[in-house]
């Protein structure tokens, strides 16, 4: 049995003197849903392109299903990578894309694909270049789901999709995942929308791994404290504070770390409200901190 689906060791990609991905190391285990999160230009797409052998790493080691992915049909036939800006041949219809996918992906489920076409209300005979932005994205989503590839990667797959269609995608994904477990990587900015799906989270920032942690662990690793400024200040003294949002005489602070029973009582006695921090807030705080520091230094 294979220990890991993807293994990155000090993977680096540089363009001239710009380093897009800087010594990134992580592993993806089989049958888990991963969130690959980070800001625009953090290097997520570059990493995913390297995993699928569409881009070449400058240095470092990369193994997918235990082997190097470049020109490796054993690896590539098990991978399905759906990206936001996917190009299709100009004359291709929706049907052409789906029919071809059924020959390209060994686990393709034709019936599932047909159901999804109905769900997403796609016109099969329409040419890809005549589809609206949302429909274009739906085709990618259908291919990604119906391919049932042991490693399925979605990179911002839903540009132009409305909330209903996105919810449909999450529902179908989670339903099908329950019956056909596989490794799924979701890369997205809509962190709160997908946070219930994610089992493990990798945050990339500035070409480096910032966080690589179990989703549950991460959710419990920070909280917010709200109350009068003085009470909050006394409570957070000595703690790692990641955010501060004053509002009049009130203050809301984000704090990392776990809350002990003693601390909880202390907060109660001070009249402070403790709340769980959302994954999105947490990641926004963590990935924007650097910018704040820079801004401060400049000012």
């Amino acid at each position: 049995m294979m220990s890991s689906v993807v293994e990155l060791k000090k993977l680096t990609k540089s363009y001239g003197d710009v380093t897009a991905v800087n010594e990134v190391s992580f592993t993806l285990e089989p049958d888990k849903i991963y969130g690959l999160l980070g800001r625009n230009g953090a290097g997520k797409t570059t990493i995913m392109h390297m995993i699928t052998a569409q881009l070449f790493a400058t240095s470092g080691e990369l193994k997918v299903f235990g082997e190097a992915p470049y020109e490796n049909s054993r690896v590539l036939s098990q991978v399905c990578f759906i990206k936001e800006s996917q190009k299709y041949p100009d004359n291709y219809t929706v049907k052409d894309v789906l029919e071809l996918s059924s020959s390209l992906f060994p686990n393709w489920d034709r019936q599932f694909a047909n159901e999804l076409v109905v769900d997403f209300q796609l016109p099969l005979k329409r040419k890809m270049k005549k589809l609206s932005r949302g429909m274009h994205s739906s085709v990618g989503i259908i291919v990604g789901l119906a391919s049932r590839a042991p490693l399925t990667i979605f990179d911002e797959p839903y540009l132009g999709l409305d909330a209903v269609a996105r919810a449909l995608f999450y529902d179908r994904l989670i339903d099908d995942y329950a019956d056909n477990p596989r490794t799924i990587v979701l890369s997205t900015h809509l962190i709160d929308e997908v946070s219930r799906l994610l089992e493990h989270i990798i945050v990339i920032d500035g070409g480096k791994v910032l966080i690589n942690e179990d989703a549950e662990e991460l959710r419990g690793s920070a909280y917010t404290v709200a109350g009068t400024a003085t009470a909050v200040e006394s409570f957070i003294a000595g703690k790692t504070v990641i955010s501060r949002e004053p509002f009049g005489s009130l203050l809301t602070a984000g704090v990392t770390g776990r809350l002990s029973e003693q601390e909880r009582k202390k907060a109660d006695s001070l009249g402070l409200a403790i709340a769980a921090i959302s994954l999105q807030q947490l990641i926004v705080q963590l990935t924007s901190r650097k910018k704040d520091v820079k801004g401060g230094a400049r000012g």
Partner: peptide
């Protein structure tokens, strides 16, 4: 298209 759809 081909490269993104797992063709060598």
């Amino acid at each position: 298209f081909a490269i993104s759809f797992s063709i060598r």
